[in-house]
């Protein structure tokens, strides 16, 4: 997680580290929060929120890493990184549910049941939570009520968080199929069909990145793909191992 002047990293040693964005010097390190932290923290105002496998959400001061008074404890561990929208945290858990938790509250606002874990952090826009699930589905859920708006079965686990290209939602499944959804389109019987798909024929587990309408995908074949969403094809492919990509 990157803010104006710092990088925040959750580590396998159970601590959160803050590093200077320019020089990489350590600003602070938190206390040990859990046995290991494998999920990315999020920032809201001056607080950093981190989810743990043992079912905690901790809030830390971005200034010195001190624990803030509010923390949330669930009966189940959290599988995904948290996402924040209008003072509410959305996070996936090991019981296959996506939870909505009001910051400062003690009970979840709602939970939404998927077929498997919500591994990737959801993205939220205009009151809709878009969450990919390891059951192979992309769900659009009302952020306020937890009601399903639409879903789309990609047939393969969705491991990485979606990204936005204007009003287009870009989703990758683990089999390397990239789905483009027009979020203004009307779903039929709560089933949304993708506007277009692009296949890269390589497994995708890493985060997607978008810049100037080009989506960059680091696939499991150790290649970086640049996808032109408007054209619906691969612009180029770069091998990250030094070998020449085909």
């Amino acid at each position: 997680m990157i803010s104006n002047d710092a990088i925040y990293v959750a580590s396998s040693d159970g601590k959160v580290y803050s590093l200077d964005k320019v020089f990489g010097d350590s600003n602070w390190e938190s206390d040990i929060l859990s046995e290991k932290l494998w999920k990315t923290p999020v920032i809201e105002d001056d607080a950093l929120y981190v989810s743990t496998f043992d079912g905690h959400i901790y809030s830390l001061s971005t200034k010195d890493g001190a624990l803030l008074p509010w923390a949330f404890k669930a009966d189940i561990g959290f599988a995904s990184s948290p996402a924040i929208y209008q003072d509410t945290i959305f996070v996936g858990a090991f019981d296959n549910n996506l939870y909505a938790i009001k910051i400062g509250g003690n009970e979840p606002l709602w939970k939404f049941q998927g077929g498997r874990w919500f591994w990737a952090a959801p993205v939220i826009r205009d009151g809709i939570v878009y969450a990919g699930c390891l059951d192979g589905k992309m769900y659009a859920i009302s952020a306020e009520t937890g009601e399903l708006k639409w879903e789309c079965d990609t047939h393969h686990p969705v491991v990485s968080s979606p990204v936005w290209d204007g009003d287009l939602l870009i989703v990758a499944d683990e089999a390397g199929e990239i789905f483009v959804f027009d979020t203004n389109a009307r779903p039929e019987n709560k089933v949304m069909l993708p506007m277009k798909t692009i296949s890269i024929n390589a497994s995708v587990q890493g985060a997607l990145c978008i810049h100037d309408e080009i989506v960059y995908v680091h696939a499991q074949d150790n290649c970086l793909y640049a996808l032109d969403i408007a054209r619906g094809g691969i612009n180029w492919k770069l091998s990250l191992t030094g070998e020449e990509a085909s």
Binding site: E35, I76, A79, A93, F94, R116, W117, L134
Partner: peptide, 15 residues
């Protein structure tokens, strides 16, 4: 995560 059942007893085992 892609091999575990949706049983409560399994979910509660994590981590």
């Amino acid at each position: 995560g892609q091999h575990v059942y949706s049983w409560t007893v399994v979910a509660q085992a994590f981590p």
